[in-house]
C-alpha cells in the first residue's frame, strides 16, 4: 500500500510515519511538507503510479489542504476509485467536515491525533473498496 502524507508540520509527519510502520500498514510512504510539491509529484507519476491513500492536512501556509484539492481536480478521473483521500486535521470545526463533503475524492475527515485503531479502520476501508 502506497501512502502519501501532506503536512507542513514535521512532527505530525514523523508521528504518522511512525504509526504507519508500527501498525504494519506500509513502509511505502512519500511525505511532503509543501503541498505544491505533492501536486508536482502527482503530475509526474499519474497515471502510472496512483497512491492508495493520501493523508492531507488542512492548515498550511500558501497552499492549504483545500487549495491542494482544487489543484488536483484535473486528475480526478485518474484518482477516482483508486486513491482514497483522508483529511487529517487538528481542526474541530464542523464547517471543515461539511466542506469536505463537497469534494468527491475525500473519503472522510479524521481528527488528529492519528492512532492505531484509526489507521486500521482506514486500511480496512481501502481494502474493502478495492475488492
Amino acid at each position: 500500500m502506497h501512502i502519501v502524507l501532506i503536512d507542513d508540520d514535521y512532527i505530525s509527519i514523523f508521528l504518522t510515519t511512525k504509526l504507519l510502520q508500527r501498525e504494519n500498514i506500509t513502509d511505502s510512504i512519500t511525505s511532503f511538507q509543501l503541498p505544491q510539491e505533492a501536486v508536482y509529484y502527482l503530475q509526474n507519476t499519474l497515471p502510472d503510479q496512483v497512491p492508495d491513500v493520501i493523508l492531507l492536512d488542512l492548515n498550511m501556509p500558501i497552499m492549504s489542504g483545500w487549495d491542494f484539492l482544487d489543484a488536483i481536480k484535473p486528475f480526478e478521473s485518474q484518482l477516482a476509485g483508486r486513491c482514497s483521500i483522508y483529511i487529517l486535521t487538528s481542526s474541530l470545526a464542523p464547517s471543515d467536515k461539511l466542506k469536505a463533503e463537497e469534494y468527491s475524492l475525500v473519503t472522510s475527515v479524521i481528527p488528529k491525533p492519528l492512532d492505531g485503531p484509526k489507521l486500521q479502520a482506514i486500511r480496512a476501508q481501502v481494502l474493502e473498496n478495492r475488492s
Binding site: S12, L15, L58, S90, K112
Partner: peptide, 10 residues
C-alpha cells in the same frame, strides 16, 4: 482548532 490543537494533537 488549529494552532492550539495542532501541537496538542501531536
Amino acid at each position: 482548532s488549529h494552532n492550539l490543537r495542532g501541537p496538542l494533537a501531536n
